[in-house]
Amino acid sequence: MKYWSDIEDSLKDNIERAIQLLLLVLGIYILIVAEKYRVAKLPVIFIGLLIWFFFRNKTKHPIVWIGFLILLIIDLCRAYFLVANHHFMLIFMVIPVIFYAYHKRSDILLKNIQMLLVVVLIASAAQKIMSSQFMSGDFYYYMLNRGSVFGVFFNFFPESLELAKSNKESVLAMSELDPNGLESIVLKDVFSNLSFISVIFAWVTVAVEFIVALALLWKPRSIWAHLLFAAMIIGILCTRLETGFMALLAICGIFLSNNIKLRLLYVIIVMACITLVVTKLGYH
């Protein structure tokens, strides 16, 4: 199978492939958010393009990466509390890649990516543990009853879809009323035993995030750690199309994995996420 050997060859240099995909995701993200704070970004883009056009083969500096980093920092400075969490993660991934262009030490780059990934996963799990609304299952209960998670799968259960629509309409109608009236509405459960399912789902979410974080901290190259990590990414994508963030997590997987088949799985996830982002079916 020539196609398979071509794919294998292409995935042998995982660092190069991961950097390539990160640049693609970064470029798309920058393009989507370019119109925000455009006055500040204008000179950076214009001068960056000129430098890239004339000097890209004559300088050792990663001009495109530095230019993109400046654009990310502009967004961060102007809207620190408004940018998405993966905006921060993108910055934390771009900086080590820029450093890598100078020191060329893959062990340093991979340690950066590993530790960043562990920090993000542990923080995410810890924040959930600290939230009573999450751990009590209230959050998932609300989201499921509105059809705001597992949206795609609701299409296979027409009755549940109708109930979710009806709940959404009731909530919307309530928002038109004066909240001081202290009214409440009764949500119709889209599935039976939903409150119990919500609590279990909340605890499973936290457990999986912690286990994956510890597995990647302990054995960042282990096939089992990566199988769990990839399953977690796919699970999150099934729950909600957080494609921008999941593309970054999958790129981290490409950086850290030693197994060609796992790298291929991560590449497929990244490509699927990119496709959903550019077609605006997924979140950027």
Binding site: Y80, V83, A84, N85, A123, K128, F134, F139, M143, R240
Partner: peptide, 13 residues
């Protein structure tokens, strides 16, 4: 919790 780079998204409504 959703904002500020603390990865607290999906911890509450």
């Amino acid at each position: 919790k959703w904002k500020g780079g603390g990865y607290g998204m999906y911890t509450g409504i």
